[in-house]
């Protein structure tokens, strides 16, 4: 049995081949241009977070150090080397800011995805968010690496420390805010008490001028002075309860 190789009609084949080329080429160009535009668009999106001041400080300090090394020894007196302890403190500050950002991202994530599903927010917000998330991940990894370079195994605990610092700072701020009200509250209460006493005295005077009837009414304001004893007793009783813990 012999096959006779069929004659290939190159001329009529050229047309479909050209068609395929044109199709593939146009699809390819479309996809590259589309992707490029998309990338440019997302690059132009506003970043989720503002500039990372702590990170800038940390890197500036490192840079200051290197520049001094390059510029030779004679300048050493003019700009002293940055001590390692300062670098460590700067890195810790940077980690604290990262903790703040991590908390923000985590709280925003649920709300953001819910809003996206409902269609309340646009796609680019979600893109910005995801980019921020990814950048933060890289940032955390970077901090851990830097920490390990500065002190052995610091990377494992730097974020624990940073977490406590962040929480302590917010707690102290809140407590300070509350305690700042003390003076204002005191002043308000002094004024108020003076007003109540004036009222009370006037009522007494009126009561004396008319008859003794309004004395019963005047016991209401006097409860301000009369009650504390009862409170102290009750409070002292509570106190004993409190001592146990």
């Amino acid at each position: 049995m012999g096959f006779s190789i069929p004659q290939i009609d190159w001329l009529s084949l050229a047309l479909p081949v050209a068609y395929l080329f044109v199709l593939g080429g146009s699809l390819y160009t479309f996809s590259t241009i589309y992707r490029k535009r998309k990338a440019a668009q997302s690059a132009n999106l506003a970043p989720w977070f503002g500039p990372h001041l702590q990170r800038d400080i940390y890197l500036s300090l490192l840079h200051l150090d290197q520049r001094d090394d390059e510029q030779g020894k004679e300048k050493k007196e003019a700009s002293p080397r940055i001590p390692d302890s300062v670098i460590r403190a700067a890195l810790l500050r940077r980690a604290v800011e990262d903790i703040h950002r991590l908390v923000q991202i985590r709280t925003a994530k649920q709300a953001c995805s819910a809003l996206l599903q409902k269609g309340s927010v646009g796609d680019d917000l979600w893109q910005r968010f995801q980019r921020a998330e990814k950048e933060l991940e890289d940032e955390l990894r970077d901090v851990v690496m830097e920490a390990n370079a500065l002190a052995p195994n610091w990377g494992q605990i730097i974020f624990q420390s940073a977490n406590e610092i962040a929480a302590n700072t917010t707690l102290r701020e809140k407590l300070d805010n509350i305690q700042e009200q003390t003076e204002a509250e005191k002043a308000w209460w002094e004024k108020r008490r003076a007003a109540i006493q004036a009222d009370f005295m006037r009522e007494l005077d009126e009561g004396d001028s008319k008859d003794g009837k309004s004395v019963s009414a005047s016991t209401a304001p006097s409860s301000v002075d009369g009650e504390p004893d009862a409170v102290v007793v009750g409070a002292a009783g509570k106190k004993k309860k409190g001592k146990k813990n």
Binding site: L53, V86, A89, L92, R93, I157, S161
Partner: peptide, 30 residues
């Protein structure tokens, strides 16, 4: 202003770190 405030924080943290007696001058785990 923001930079000043942050640097004040940094310097106070630095002073606190200097008083530590841990081997590498890093805060110990909580």
């Amino acid at each position: 202003r923001a930079l000043e405030a942050e640097l004040a924080n940094l310097n106070s943290l630095h002073r606190a770190l200097l008083s530590l007696e841990t081997p590498h001058g890093i805060p110990p785990p909580p």
